[in-house]
Design a binder for these strands. Structure first.
Lengths: 335, 335
DNA sequence: TTGAAAGCGGTACCAC
DNA sequence: GTGGTACCGCTTTCAA
C-alpha cells in the first residue's frame, strides 16, 4: 500500500501488469468504469491504489487534445486585486476537475505573449485577466484556442467585465454632492483597456455633472506609481482625486501623509477595486467595489463552457460595481 | 509570415515538410544548430519562423523527462508575503528559460498534495513555499522528484529558510528595552513549520530576557485570524503582542482600533514578514523583515541546480532577518 | 550530415 | 467486455 506519488514513475503498464489486464482495460476502467466487468474493475482499482497510479496528464493531452489544465494570466499578483479573482477561479476550476496554471506578467505585454506561447500546448484554454497585449495579438491567441478575457473587451472574444459606468456614476455623484468642482484622474497603464474605459466614462460623467476633470498622466498601477504622481496631483489644485486603482490611491495617501496634506480635509481620494487593504489604511479609502468574488468563477465557467462547446459566439458577462464610501472623501475645501 | 501562435497547431512535421527535410533534422536544428549543414539549418529556421512553430513542451517532456516547467506552490497568494517571493522566482526561472506553474493551496494540506500530484508529471521539480503537509508526505514527494522547500526544514530535503532566530532576538531585545515584561504570541497555523519554529525560538529568547510569554492559541494566518484573537490578547493583559505574521498583526490593529485600544500606548504590536502594507497602516507596523527578494531566486537556483545534477545531498540556504522598528511599538504601559 | 524507426505514457478504434 | 494496434508530438538512437 504505497501511497507515494509513484516510486520513480508508475505508468499505466505497471498497473496493467499488476492487475493482469491490458493497458486498454486500465484506461477504460478509469474513464468509464461501467464498461468493464466488475471483477476486472476491482482488480484494476486495487492495482491503481496499490501503486498510487496517477495518469500523466501531459501524455493524455497529447492524444485527447485536452490537458485538464487552464492557464490564468494576470499582470501583477502583488496587486491585491488579483488574488481574490485567482482564488475564486482556482476554486471553481478545482470543482470542475481542472488544474490552474497561473502566471504573472509583471505588467509586460511581451512577457504576456511569451507566457501564453510557453503554456499554450499545456492548457486547454486561457483566462486572461486585464491583458495588456494588443487586440490583434489577443485575437490571434483566440484563433488557436479558447480564451476568456477579464476586464477587457475585444470584438469576438468572450469576456467578463465590470460595469464600470455604474460605479463611476455613483462616485462622481458623491463628489459632486460634496461640492467638488475640480477632480484629478490619475491614470494607470497606457496599455490597460480598463484604464481607457474608466477615463472615457469619467470624462462624460464629470462633464455631465459640471465637474472639471484634470488629467495627471499615466503611471504604474502600483503603490509607487501613485506616490510618484502625488505632487503633480496637488499642483493641479484639484479638491478631489480619483485613481485608476486602489494601489495607486494608497500610494497617493502615503505621499500626502508624508507631505502633511490632510485627507479628506485638503483633498478627497477615491480608489478603484476595493482591495482588502482599502479599509485598513488611514483614512480608510472610499473606493469603487467590484464583484471580484464572482469574476473568477464566471470566467472559469465561461471558459469551460467554451471548451465543452456549450457556448458559441462570444459570450459576455457583466458584473456589478458599487461605490463604497469611507473616510477618504469629504466636503471640498474652499480655495 | 504568419506569426500567430500556430494556426490550429503547427507541429514539427509541418516544419519538416515546408523545409523539405525530415523531422529529425528540424529537431536537430533546434537542439544543436551546429550539427546540421548551414543551408539545411537556414531552410529549417525559415520554415520555423514562417509557421511560427513552437515545440510542444509536454510532448518533449514525455521523452526527455524534462518539461522546462517548475511547480511553485504557496499556501495563500492573498497574503502579500508571497507575491514578492513568487515574482522573484518567476523572474529567475525566466532567465534560465523555465516556466513557472503556480498554485495556491488555500492553506489546505490535502489540496497541497492534490496539486502536487496533478502537476507532478508536468513539471521538473517543485518549489514548495511554507508547505503545510507532513514531513512524511514531503519526503515521499522528494523521493519522486526534485523538491526545494522554502521556510521549512525536513531532513534530507533541500531547503531555503530564514534565520528567524536573529530577527526574533532583536525584537525581544527591543521590547525588553521598552520595559515589556509580559508579551503575548499569536500563533499561526498548527501545520506551519515556521510557526512552530518561531514559537520555540520565542520561548527561549523571552525567558532569557526575563519576559513572560503568553500563548493565545492558534488562528488563521490572515487578517481575520488576527482580528478574531484580538480580544483574547487583551484579556491576557500583556503589554505587547507578537503575531505569527503581518497579516495577523494587521488584523489585531484593526480590531484594536475598533475597540479604541491605543497602539502603542495601550499595547505594542510586532509583526513578522514586513509585507508592503506594514508601513502603510496606522500606526505603521514594527515587524521582522525577511530577505524575501532573495528567497525566490535562491529557491529557483537551488532547484535547477538539483535538476542539473550540480548539487547533491540536501543543500541549505539560510537568509537573514532583521527587525524593522516603526510606530506600533512603544514603552510598556504601567498597570 | 541525414532520415527511418522506435518509443515516451496515454487513449481511441477495431476486431475478436 | 477485452486486447491489439496505431498514433498524439517530439527526441534519440542507429544505419545509411
Amino acid at each position: 500500500m504505497d501511497s507515494r506519488l509513484g516510486g520513480v514513475a508508475v505508468t499505466i503498464k505497471d498497473v496493467a501488469r499488476l492487475a493482469g489486464v491490458s493497458a486498454s482495460s486500465v484506461c477504460r476502467t478509469l474513464a468509464a468504469p461501467d464498461d468493464v466487468r466488475p471483477d476486472t474493475r476491482e482488480r484494476v482499482q486495487r492495482a491503481v491504489a496499490e501503486l498510487g497510479y496517477y495518469p500523466n496528464r501531459a501524455a493524455r493531452g497529447l492524444i485527447t487534445g485536452r490537458t485538464g489544465n487552464l492557464g490564468l494570466i494576470v499582470p501583477d499578483i502583488a496587486n491585491p486585486f488579483f488574488p481574490d479573482i485567482i482564488k475564486a477561479a482556482e476554486a471553481r476550476a478545482r470543482e470542475l476537475d481542472y488544474a490552474v496554471f497561473l502566471a504573472d506578467t509583471d505588467e509586460d505585454p511581451a512577457a504576456e505573449m511569451g507566457l501564453i506561447r510557453a503554456m499554450s500546448k499545456q492548457v486547454d484554454g486561457f483566462l486572461l485577466v486585464s491583458a495588456r497585449c494588443s487586440d490583434e495579438e489577443l485575437r490571434s491567441v483566440y484563433d488557436d484556442m479558447p480564451v476568456v478575457v477579464v476586464q477587457r473587451c475585444v470584438r469576438h472574444v468572450p469576456a467578463v467585465t465590470f460595469d464600470d459606468h455604474d460605479g463611476i456614476r455613483q462616485a462622481v455623484g458623491h463628489l459632486a454632492t460634496l461640492g467638488h468642482r475640480r477632480v484629478a484622474y490619475v491614470a494607470g497603464p497606457r496599455t490597460s483597456w480598463s484604464n481607457k474605459e474608466r477615463q472615457r466614462i469619467l470624462r462624460s460623467t464629470t462633464s455631465a455633472a459640471g465637474i472639471e476633470l484634470v488629467d495627471t498622466g499615466h503611471a504604474a498601477p502600483t503603490l509607487d506609481g501613485g506616490t510618484a504622481v502625488a505632487d503633480l496631483v496637488l499642483a493641479t489644485r484639484a479638491t478631489a482625486v480619483m485613481a485608476f486603482n486602489d494601489m495607486m490611491a494608497l500610494g497617493l495617501l502615503r505621499r500626502f501623509r508624508a507631505l502633511g496634506v490632510d485627507v479628506p480635509g485638503d483633498i478627497s481620494v477615491v480608489g478603484f477595486d476595493d482591495i482588502p487593504l482599502a479599509e485598513l489604511v488611514d483614512p480608510p479609502l472610499t473606493t469603487i467595489s467590484l464583484a471580484k468574488q464572482r469574476v473568477g468563477r464566471a470566467g472559469v465557467d465561461m471558459l469551460i463552457g467554451l471548451l465543452d462547446g456549450r457556448l458559441d459566439r462570444a459570450p459576455r458577462t457583466i458584473l456589478p460595481t458599487q461605490l463604497t464610501v469611507r473616510a477618504s472623501t469629504g466636503p471640498a475645501r474652499r480655495d
